[in-house]
């Protein structure tokens, strides 16, 4: 017991670092869900904005989408922009989205493909689609809000940049 003061003097302030810690994270690409969501929101917002822009321009300059979408998705979109142009259609108003939630993070995917998948609610309530006479060609049964399952590819890691890889209508409730 006499040893106590000596011990205390010897070890003035053993700041308790929770040492020996096993790694508490599992995220080589994203430090957290929040960081992943932020990257996904930025990527998808950029994709939507550019797509809107091209459709407002009547499908002109379709290759502009390439900086925001994977090669495969860009091809699909460019094909669609071509049809829009051929029909003489153009859009007005901007697309919105909300309620983005993470479905899965695949941190160990090959070459960053499908590194992140989210659900989101696509909102086109502000968008109209017009023909050359200015008549709306929007389907009367168009849902203004549609749930989507959107996956992203990793474009770069430092900083983390994502490309929209696919956007599929998702058949579940609770997102919109």
């Amino acid at each position: 017991m006499l040893a106590l003061p000596a011990l205390a003097a010897c070890a003035p302030a053993p700041t308790p670092v929770p040492g020996h810690t096993a790694a508490a994270t599992d995220a080589p690409v994203f430090a957290s869900d929040e960081e992943a969501l932020a990257a996904a929101k930025k990527a998808y917002a950029g994709y939507l904005h550019m797509s809107d822009q091209i459709l407002m321009d009547g499908g002109s300059g379709p290759e502009r989408i390439k900086g925001y979408a994977s090669t495969r998705l860009a091809e699909l979109e460019i094909e669609s922009y071509g049809r829009t142009k051929a029909k003489g259609l153009r859009s007005t108003g901007g697309s919105l989205f909300s309620n983005m939630t993470i479905q899965s993070r695949g941190d160990a995917t090959v070459q960053g493909r499908g590194v992140l998948t989210v659900y989101l609610c696509s909102d086109v309530s502000e968008v109209d689609f017009l023909d050359s006479r200015g008549q709306s060609v929007v389907s009367p049964s168009r849902p203004d809000r549609t749930p989507f399952e959107v996956s992203f590819d990793l474009a770069s890691t430092d900083p983390v940049e994502l490309l929209v890889a696919s956007a599929d209508v998702w058949q579940g409730a609770g997102i919109c």
Binding site: L48, S51, D52, L55, L73, L76, E77, E79, S80, Y81, R83, T84, L89, S91, S95, S122, V124, V127, F129, V137, V138, S139, P140, S141, R142, P143, R145, T146, P147, E149, S166, A167, D168, V169, W170, Q171, A173, G174, I175, C176
Partner: peptide, 27 residues
Amino acid sequence: SAAGGDCSRADVQMGSCPEANGVFDHG
């Protein structure tokens, strides 16, 4: 129908996604 292929942004905006209509206002 089962959600499958991509639906282009123009399809979404025109309401031409066949699998999107009439199934979402449930939640």
